[in-house]
Write a protein that binds this DNA or RNA. Structure first.
Lengths: 206, 206
DNA sequence: ACCTGAACACCGTTCAAGT
DNA sequence: ACCTGAACACCGTTCAAGT
């Protein structure tokens, strides 16, 4: 990793994110990012060891837009919800980044900053030790899973319409649930699942 | 999609899964699968429209190993937990399939059969309408997210050791939580998060 | 009819050559 | 010293040619 000169890492990340937003994951190539910046393809290797590191830069760029100051007032459930929703909103603005999220979530400073904020709220609420570990893990699991379900071929939306016509004899409950799902929007679905988790957590504090 | 002859789709799926287990996602190429089967690379296109469809076959193969008969007795929480754990175990036997899961989960017969079984249990427990929709979505989100966290660079395990040495001034809660996490195994972590979700669901039935 | 190998249009990355 | 383009070793897939 030699020293950069004419480009800042931020410029690189912006260019890569622009390419990703425009052409999807398949369009994110070293050649395309080079063209976007007006430099040679190989010029990128001055800033980044390989393609994977470039992907990490993009993920970090999206996460950088997340405000990680824990919301000041209100019950801890609300404060966690706000932090979770901020990530969902940031990712929702760049859906093409979703498939990159799981692989680049570890060793991401953005994720660490966010997790620290969540832990501040959980700790103030009274969680500690194993319970706090499990709580953070569960919230992160739900967040990542729900975001992927939402953006990678939805259970709600267009996918549900198709599923409502399932063979009713083989999948009776599934067909009925798919019909019910047509009346449930993505926000309600995401928020409802998160509420279940928060209720489960609240029960532990009794 | 012409008619097959000398190979069954199962043979193809087995071969692709063997290649995936051996060489990871990067090793799963049309050429490698052809070689594994002793046929030409192009021979695969008689069974599969493109690489994506081959990936779908592999996912289906792994999911085919999941017993989807709802467990007979016991409280509904236990029955859901058994169904969830079966998927986790099947995927755990072929960790390389994890990155393929989110993209191929929709229109997967295996997922549908599993979801139908979960819905049978939820319905018998008293869930219906929007609540049932949200419950299924939440369980699936947690399952997919938690599996990915577990297998794609863990919060527990080796990753935690690194995180326990975080700059303590910038991430005080994170450093402490990472130390706590060393005593929490993957089963406890996964099961603990699922228990939170099930507790939240139980609360809705009161 | 079924199957195959050469060929094409891409990748990421190496490396010798430019200034 | 910084940057670049040709070249290499791969991909998935098309298609003309084999039996």
């Amino acid at each position: 990793m030699p020293r950069p000169r004419s480009l800042t890492p931020d410029q690189l990340a912006d260019a890569a994110l622009a390419v990703l937003d425009r052409g999807g994951l398949a369009g994110l190539t070293m050649r395309a990012v080079g063209a976007q910046l007006g430099t040679s393809t190989m010029g990128l290797y001055r800033y980044v060891a390989d393609r994977e590191e470039l992907e990490g830069l993009v993920v970090e760029r999206v996460l950088a837009g997340v405000d990680v100051t824990p919301p000041a007032g209100g019950p801890w459930q609300h404060r966690v919800r706000v932090l979770v929703d901020r990530v969902r909103a940031a990712v929702g603005a760049h859906p093409a980044v979703v498939p990159l999220l799981p692989a680049h979530r570890h060793r991401s400073p953005g994720v660490l900053r966010w997790a620290e904020a969540v832990l501040v709220v959980l700790t103030e609420a009274g969680f500690a030790g194993t319970r706090r570990v499990v709580a953070l893990r569960a919230l992160l699991s739900y967040l990542i899973g729900a975001i992927q379900l939402e953006h990678l071929g939805p259970l709600a939306g267009a996918g549900t319409a198709a599923m409502a016509q399932l063979p009713r004899d083989a999948f009776p409950h599934m067909a009925e649930t798919a019909r019910d799902a047509r009346g449930v929007g993505p926000d309600e679905e995401f928020g409802g699942g998160l509420a279940l988790l928060l209720d489960g957590l609240a029960r532990q504090l009794d």
